[in-house]
Design a binder for these strands. Structure first.
Lengths: 158, 158
DNA sequence: CAATTAGTTCTGTAATTACAGAACCAAAAA
DNA sequence: TTTTTGGTTCTGTAATTACAGAACTAATTG
């Protein structure tokens, strides 16, 4: 019988990494992001990352640069130390979600455009399409509101 | 000087298709989905799809099957006609969004798990991580509420 | 019973991705 | 000035994807 056991750090990296991949990032990025979540201390040097994950310098370099370009990762420097220490930029996730929202809202807009070009035959379909576009708009608005709500909540608490 | 002009059907297919691709679907799927949005009538046979998009039978077959497995496309049959006519399943998009939401919520859960395994040093980072996990949970809840709200709104109107 | 139709599945391949390894480079240190 | 450090960029490649084309199949039609 298997003994219940806490997940090891490596297992977390794997688990988080896979989830991150499912968000559309490449494997190496997922694992770097994951490592930076479990990392203790939460900032790690270029070398530490490549050693821990056993991936090449090039993979680390391109992945980090991509993650930084998306504001998902940032770096700090320590006095008297030439290295950069990479860490998760916690606000990046919010930005990511905002972008995905915007994309969907755009999708809704295109649907409306397409709708305006459709013939008025097939009313049932047109109505359903209209509703879909409205749904996307609705969700976009609701999410914006939710984000505002979160911001306010945070401000009050912080 | 370019004359302002309504987009042609092909242009919509292209535009919608690209948006759909950005949601993570492969090109052929994006274009099929797009074609079914602008299609008049809104149901098209296997053959019509491959002819319009000029893609192979295999591409149409696998794409349609995938889209149907995800409930994004369905088909109808017409009396005295052996063919199936494929059309968009409008409720599929909602399901898709629900699934994406669930994935993010799961991501938040993993973050919490990881958190519970972190040392208590680096409080600042831990707090931020906690907040991120809470943010994902919060957004998940808000979206569930939004979905409910939409359902109620629809029921009242319909 | 053929022959046709409506699609499916298999096979091969061009294009792309994701990465390793090595060469490279700029800034800092010696 | 040379050497070392902390990366970046280039080159090559294994693996994967996305699809075409052909072979195939089950149901229908003649």
């Amino acid at each position: 019988m298997k003994v219940e056991k806490k997940l090891s750090a490596k297992d977390y990296v794997e688990k988080i990494g896979v989830s991150f991949e499912k968000e559309g990032f490449q494997p190496a990025m997922g694992r770097i992001f994951a490592y930076l979540i479990i990392a203790d201390p939460p900032h790690k040097s270029f070398e530490e990352i490549l050693e821990y994950l056993k991936i090449s310098k090039s993979a680390v370099s391109t992945s980090l640069n991509y993650l930084m370009s998306r504001d998902l990762v940032e770096y700090i420097t320590l006095p008297g130390d030439r290295k950069r220490y990479f860490k998760i930029n916690m606000s990046g996730w919010v930005t990511l979600i905002k972008k995905k929202m915007a994309r969907r809202s755009f999708f809704g807009e295109i649907m409306k455009e397409a709708l305006s070009a459709r013939s008025s035959k097939y009313k049932e379909f047109n109505d359903a399409l209209q509703e879909q576009a409205e749904f996307l708009e609705f969700m976009h608005k609701e999410m914006r509101d939710a984000l505002d709500k979160w911001e306010r909540k945070k401000k009050k608490k912080g």
